[in-house]
Every structure is written in C-alpha cells, then in structure tokens.
Design a protein around this nucleic acid. Structure first.
Length: 833
RNA sequence: GGGGCCGUAGCCCAACGGCAGGAGGCGAACGGUUUAGGUCCGUUACAGUGCGGGUUCGAAUCCCGCCGGCCCUACCA
C-alpha cells in the first residue's frame, strides 16, 4: 500500500465509511466480549477497578444528556482497561416508575410493554455508541429477580425497626395521585409533573433514615477529596443538624408539659409567648372553648393555602390566640399560647418558645399582634422593638436571673445544666432531614411485602414466599384513583395471614423507585445471584465503587439514600465498607443556546441525527473536548464537524504510518523531536486523565497528530520509526475518546485487534528531560530576558548569569539590586534597589 | 432572607502564585492544492484575565468589597 492520496476523499470522511467502521468494530466487541470483567479471584492479581454510571430510566431513546454522561464514564473505564486493570463497567435500567404507567393507561397496555421496548431501544443505542459495558451483567429493576431483593431488604429493615408505618402530614401530588418523599418536592411542586403539592394526613411506610443522620454527616470525612465539595455541602445542609436544647413548658390545664426545641436556650428568659403549629394535633387539643371558632376558621384558612403560598417569606405573619398560657420553667412566667402557620408541625416538636428580641420570625409575629419584646442578650445593637430587626449575635446576657453577665456560649451551657438539674429540659439535637417516605399509591413498582391481618397486625411475608409479584393490570385499571391500583385487584389483595392462616389483605402500596437505585451497584457484582441481594464475596472483591458518574440533581436524593442503605448493610454485616462511592463526578448538562433542551419548546438536538451526520466518534469527541466534564455544554458552541476533520487527520497519520513501516519497528532511530513530543504527550495525558481533564488530554492528542503530520510532510517522512511510534500512541490514547477510529487505525498500523485493552505505555523518562530550559529573567516582576540553561543549573550560577545580562543591567540602570529571587532552573526575579 | 459556584481574544476553553508573543479548537481573513466548492496543507489578525482595593520579590491564580451570570435552599426555631 502506498501513501494515501490526500487530494482524494479521506478514508472515513464520508458517512458511509464511518457507519461501516462503526458496524465493524461494534460487531467485533460484541463477538469477543472485549469489556467483560474477569470475576475470578485467585491468580488474577490485576488491580480491580469498579466504574459505574448512574443507570438510565427507560423513557424512550437515549438523548444528548445520556450521551455526555456515558461518554465521560466510558473514558474513565476505557482508561483503566488500557492500563490493564480488571475493570467492572456494568449497565442496567431503573425500569420501575410512573411514566411507564401513564404510557400504559394511554395505550391500553401493560407498563412492561413500554418499559422493555424502551430498554431494548436504549441498549441498541448504547452498543452503537460504543460504550465499554460488560453486557453480561445487565439488570432491570422491574425484573422479579431484582425487586424480590427490594422486598427482602425491606423485611430486614423492618426487623431492625428501620421500616415502619406511621401517620402524619405528607406531600400529596394531586396529578400523580400519590404521596411524595420530601426530596421529590421542589419549591412546593411535584418534581415530576410540576403540580402544586398539597398536604394530607395519611398513614404511610417510612425508612428511618434520620437514625443515621449523624453517621451520614460524620462519614462525609471519607468522601472529602473524592466527591465534589458542592455535593457534600448540599447534603450537609439537607441533613441540617442543629444543636440546642429541649425545654419542657407546663401548659395550664394540661397534665403533660409541652416540649419545645430551641437552638437558643440562652434566650429562655426572653420568651414572651408560645406558638404551636396550627396544623398540629396539639393546637387543636390546646384550644380553649372560647377560642374554638376563631381557631377553626384559622385552621381552615391555613389548610386552603398551597405549600407555595405558605412558604412565601414575603407573607405577613398570621395566627390566633388559643386562650391558654404556658409557664416558663425558669421564671414561672405565664406566656400566651398562640397557633400559627410559621411554626412547622413536623420539625422539632411542632411548638416553639417565641423570643421576639432575638428571632426575626418571632419579632415579626410579635409586632403583628402587639406582643411584648424583651431583650435578654445585649449585643450592643439598637432595641429590636424599635428597629423591627431581631439581634442574634453574641453579647452579654441581661434580664436573665442567674445568666446575667454571661456570654452567649456560656449561657447556653449553663442553662442546659440548670434545666437538666430541675428536670425541665436537656441538651438536644434536631435534624432538618425527615424520615424517608417510602410508599406510593401506584402500580409499577415493588409491592411492599406486608400482609395486614386483623388479628396479627402487620405481618411480613416470609422470605420463601418472595417475590410478591404484581397482578396483571393494564390500561384503565391503572388510572389514578387516590388509592393504589393494587387495591382494586381483589384476587391479589385477598390472601391469608402467614402467621395465623386467617383471611388477610396485602399491603397495596408500592415502594419509591429510589429504593431500587439505592443498592443496584451492589447487585452488579453478582447480578444472577439468587441466595441474597448480592454475593457478599463478590461485593467484597469489587466494592465500593471506585468512580461513580452522574448528574448533581441526585445530590440529596439518590446519593443520600444509597449512602444510607450502605450503612444499614454494613450494620447487617453484608458489606465491609460504609460509603458506596469513593469518587463522584457530576457531569454538566447539554444545553442549546443557553437554555435546557426540551421537547415542548422545540429547543432540542437529536442524538441519533447527530450520530447519523457526524458519526459516534465525532459526537463523543466534541462533547469531551468542549470543556471540563463538570461544565454545561452548549451545543451551539461545539462543532462535531471539526471533530470529524480532526479524526480524519488522525486516521490518515495512522494509515500512512501503517503503510510505511511494520509493527515492532524499533523507534530508537526515529526523529528525536517527534519522539519527545510523543513521550511528553503520553506523560501529560496520563496525568490529565487521573484528574478528569479530558478536554486538555484531547488537545494534547491534537498536538501530537500535528507534530506527526509535520514529520511526514516536511521531515523524514512516513517511514520514520518515530512516526509509527507517534501513530500507535495516537491510536491508544484516542481509543478512550473515539474508539472506532482508534480500532480502525490500530488495524491499519498492522496490529491485531483490539487496541482497547492493556496498551497504555509509560513515557520514557529519558525522552522527557530537556537538554536546555528557558530561564526567565524578571526585573521587578517583568520579563526582561531569557536564558537557555541546563536543567541542573545551580541557583548561584543562574543568578550570576542573570545579573550578567545586558538587558538586565539596562533595566537596573546601574543601581545594585536590592534582592534576587532565584527559582532554578526556570526563573530569576531581580528587585531593583 | 441564607449558602455556594463562575466571569481569560468574536465564541468554547488552557494556564490555577513564576514567560498570557495563550496549549487546543471554533469562527474570520489571506495564500497553496483543486475545473470549482468542500476536503487538505500553510500563514495571519484579535484579549491582557468583569471592576476596585489588599497580600507578595512576583497575582488570571490568594484575601476583601462591588458589578454581572448561574445553582442550591427556603418561616427548620
């Protein structure tokens, strides 16, 4: 074969060739199971590497967002494959969920039809997209083999008291006709459909994640450095640990005292009234008969408010006096009890002591209803009663009996002591985090494996009767009716009690699909295992996940739940680590013209069409080259066409080198400058990949291609051994980003496939050293001269050379330097006298 | 209201205390190749790092304030 005629069509320039190359290598990878993880222990001493992309929801075909996220995960996995590691890079589908149900209603079909059809579509697209998955481990959470273990885990949680059924106010989405977890409510709206969420009092299943709040906080120390600081911060805020005290207030006419939580027990002497959440049962109970009408009217008014209205901070404070008095435990003072909606029923104890001088919300309320304001911490700022601005800083305690004269921190400590001695309070911690509301009144999910028996109560379904599968409901059967569609499946619901054998009813709710995704990364380690959710030994081998890749929208949902599950499993002795993901990378979004892509506004780029036009490699490459993986990519700013041109250039270098020399040629006699570029490129790319700087790594490959081109055209020519060395390096490094072109080039270089595994090379240190270094000579921080010096030059010698420079003396103007800073061999800075 | 991130050529981005004749790319102009266009090869132009202070021998880089944009959170006592 002779050198390719560059005036003609380049080998992969037209889309037919690109498509043919893609099909060829896709078939090769498929046939040879190139990316299958080796699961044996024993003699395989390669480092194990576990790379997981957040698994997709099967809502139609893959889109641009998937393309970016999975391209990033693929680079990380392929880099490890190239280094010769034993890599586990699995794929699965998060295949339970509401959209399937809605589609089934619309089409009068079963949710599984839509779901599995979409999974097939996405799987085919992933293969076309060239992602290095181990396909043998594929899983779907809607398979009974999978959700069976959701149920098994639920029962273990139940046994440990970590799953419970409880009443309370819950978020209800009127459109989806189901309850939502706190994490699924965004600004008072259903995260999925955007409807305004309303509050309902219902009995629901919960996972007791709050019991793990402290460990979820403390174990973040393990994640520092591996996770984005931003995500850790969001989780910290979400958990929202507050240190303070519980204080018991006697309430006249009530036997039991009412406890309040406060972070400012030091201000106890400044409490001038008492507030109970209007929607809490306590308010109803405490309401005096003469206030009943006013209270009922107020409560009805609050109930009418949507969460959005209620949460508006602009709103005037509202409330109503309950006709009762609470007694301050430290000074016996009677303070009026009010009901108001600015106190939340489900935080703390649903009641507060109001200290208007030192809490803005209490002050706003006091001013609205003309309640007294008493300063108990002198901060040196003006009187809140006058200014309307509460003071919350440090200061000296006043009007506070034994606390007078203490500083804030001392007073907090002291008062907790006093309360404890008298039995009227204690130090306490509260969390913003709520328990995880688990049950959903929908069909396409994991049935909760509990049977309700009149005699025995909540009875777990025995392990050997799992899985509890779904009845065959379809179409209109699934229409939302406020109770789970399962409740209408009489044959399914009616069962016998596992304990007493009497007639009983199945629980008709299904689990939040976040349960499914809280442990799937463990299932991948032994996806067909049927003696438990996973083979403990397999997880010991692979876990925890070395690198997790996914969007930051899961910061306080999925990622928190997965951490919680991992800790529970650790406590059960099933895993030997307490954090599931060592490193986390949050890729940015793919946007268009500055805003999110969306079907409804037509602001959309179709992934399939882009691939048809430019090829998989070019689409992948231009996304990875656009910027750091964490940044958003505006499709208006990227150029897949430019990637096509670059890939053609790269392939041409590989083709020409392949035609001019044979594999195994000793590079030692080749063009030295090109060899240095090659080895410097290897060195730099290796470092860049360790820190996920893919865009810069690609730029380095571009430089190498340009350098090789120069040697071919205007240097020793394509047969030079250094050209082969460069071309092979291009194939190996490019294989992470543009796997099809890399395989094709590798083959044209005369190598047997595949280029993808174990071909990473170390840079030759001898070729990295520079014979001379340019030392910069600054005068007063400005560059005035450059010196070519040896890399080993001593500081003293470099200083001597710098001071001898004519340009330097010109700038010094005869005045002796005051100071000389030498950073051999790169820099000298001379400070004039 | 609270918390966080980010502002470098027309555009995307590098450098993250030590050379901004910017690493790379897009776009632009010009030249070569071509019947022509595209491709391909080559050359050129364009910023001094949002603004104002400070620390330092030296600041795009660290600190403070402001302006602009984005994100999270939102009456959590």
């Amino acid at each position: 074969m002779t050198a390719v005629d560059r005036s003609g069509a380049a080998p992969a320039a037209d889309t037919d060739d690109t498509a043919a190359v893609q099909e060829k290598w896709q078939a090769y990878w498929d046939k040879h199971d190139t990316f299958r993880a080796a699961d044996a222990g024993g003699d395989d001493d390669r480092p194990r590497r576990y790379v997981v992309d957040m698994f997709p929801y099967p809502s139609g075909d893959l889109h641009m967002g998937h393309a970016e996220a999975f391209a990033i995960g693929d680079v990380i996995a392929r880099y490890r494959f190239q280094r010769g590691d034993n890599v586990l890079h699995p794929i699965g589908w998060d295949s339970f969920g509401l959209p399937a149900e809605n589609a089934a209603i619309k089409r009068d079909a079963h949710p599984a039809d839509w779901t599995y059809a979409n999974i097939d579509t996405q799987a085919a697209s992933f293969k076309r997209y060239g992602i290095s998955f181990d396909w043998s481990r594929r899983l779907h959470t809607s398979d009974p083999d999978y959700f069976r273990w959701n149920q098994w885990l639920f029962l273990r949680f139940f046994e440990r008291g970590l799953a419970y059924r409880g009443g309370g106010l819950v978020n209800w989405c009127p459109t989806d006709q189901t309850v939502l977890a706190n994490e699924q409510v965004v600004a008072g709206r259903c995260e999925r459909c955007g409807s305004e969420v309303v509050r309902r009092s219902l009995t629901q299943w919960y996972y007791r994640i709050t019991e793990y709040a402290d460990r979820l906080l403390d174990d973040m120390a393990q994640l520092e450095g591996g996770w984005p600081e931003e995500i850790l911060l969001m989780q910290r805020n979400w958990i929202g640990r507050s240190q303070g005290a519980d204080v018991h207030f006697a309430v006249e006419g009530r036997e039991e005292p009412v406890t309040v939580f406060t972070t400012r027990p030091d201000t106890l002497y400044g409490a001038t009234f008492f507030v109970v959440a209007a929607d809490a049962p306590l308010a109803d109970e405490l309401c005096a008969p003469e206030c009943r009408d006013a209270f009922d009217a107020y409560r009805a008014q609050v109930a009418r408010l949507s969460d959005i209205e209620r949460q508006s901070t602009e709103r005037e404070k509202t409330g109503v006096f309950l006709g009762r008095y609470a007694v301050n435990p430290v000074n016996g003072e009677r303070i009026p009890v009010w009901a108001a909606d600015y106190v939340l029923a489900d935080y703390g104890h649903g009641a507060i002591m109001a200290v208007p001088a030192h809490d803005q919300r209490d002050l706003d309320f006091a001013r609205t209803f003309d309640l007294p304001v008493r300063v108990v911490v002198d901060t040196g700022q003006p009187d809140p009663a006058e200014t309307g601005t509460a003071t919350s800083g440090d200061g000296v305690l006043v009007n506070s009996g034994p606390l007078d004269g203490l500083a804030k921190a001392e007073a907090i400590e002291r008062i907790i002591q006093v309360l404890a001695e008298r039995g009227t309070g204690s130090g306490a911690v509260n969390y913003r985090l709520r328990d995880w509301l688990l049950s959903r009144q929908r069909f396409w999910g994991t049935p909760i494996p509990i049977v309700h028996c009149e005699g025995c109560g909540e009875v777990p379904v025995p392990d050997d009767q799992l899985p509890v599968t779904l009845p065959d409901l379809r179409g209109a059967d699934l229409a939302p009716k406020g109770i789970s569609p399962l409740a209408a499946a009489t044959d399914w619901v009616n069962t016998s009690c596992p304990r007493c054998g009497g007639p009983a009813l199945r629980d008709t709710d299904t689990m939040d699909t976040f349960v499914d995704s809280s442990w799937y990364f463990l299932r991948y380690c032994s996806p067909r295992y049927d003696d438990g959710p996973f083979d403990v030994e397999a997880v010991r081998r692979w876990g925890p996940v070395d690198q997790y890749v996914g969007g930051k929208e899961h910061a306080t949902g999925h990622l928190l739940y997965s951490r919680f599950f991992t800790k529970v499993l650790y406590d059960m002795g099933l895993v030997d680590f307490t954090e599931p993901f060592k490193r986390l990378l949050n890729q940015g979004q793919v946007i268009l013209n500055g805003s999110a892509m969306s079907k409804s506004t037509g602001n959309l780029v179709d992934l399939g069409a882009e691939i048809d036009d430019y090829g998989v490699d070019a689409v992948r490459l231009c996304m990875l080259f656009a910027g750091p993986p964490e940044d958003d990519i505006d499709w208006a700013d990227v150029s897949p066409a430019a990637s096509v041109r670059f890939l053609n250039r790269a392939l041409r270098v590989m083709t020409e080198a392949g035609a001019a020399s044979a594999p195994g040629t000793d590079p030692g006699t080749g063009d030295l400058e090109l060899r240095k570029v090659t080895h410097r490129t290897i060195h730099q790319i290796t470092q860049l990949l360790e820190v996920n700087r893919f865009n810069v790594a690609i730029a380095r490959i571009m430089e190498l291609v340009t350098a090789a081109r120069r040697v071919i055209d205007s240097g020793p020519g394509a047969a030079d051994p250094a050209v082969r060395e460069a071309a092979e390096t291009i194939a190996v490094t490019l294989s992470l980003f543009a796997p099809y072109v890399a395989e094709e080039g590798w083959e044209r270089l005369g190598h047997a496939p595949s280029v993808a595994i174990g071909n990473w090379r170390a840079a030759d240190p001898a070729l990295l050293v520079q014979e001379t270094v340019t030392a910069v000579v600054q005068v007063a921080g400005k560059v005035r001269d450059r010196l070519e010096v040896g890399p080993e030059i001593s500081a003293a010698e470099l200083e001597r050379l710098a001071l001898a420079s004519a340009k330097v003396s010109a700038h010094l103007g005869g005045v002796p330097p005051r100071k000389v800073i030498v950073r051999a061999p790169k820099l000298v800075n001379i400070v004039p006298g």
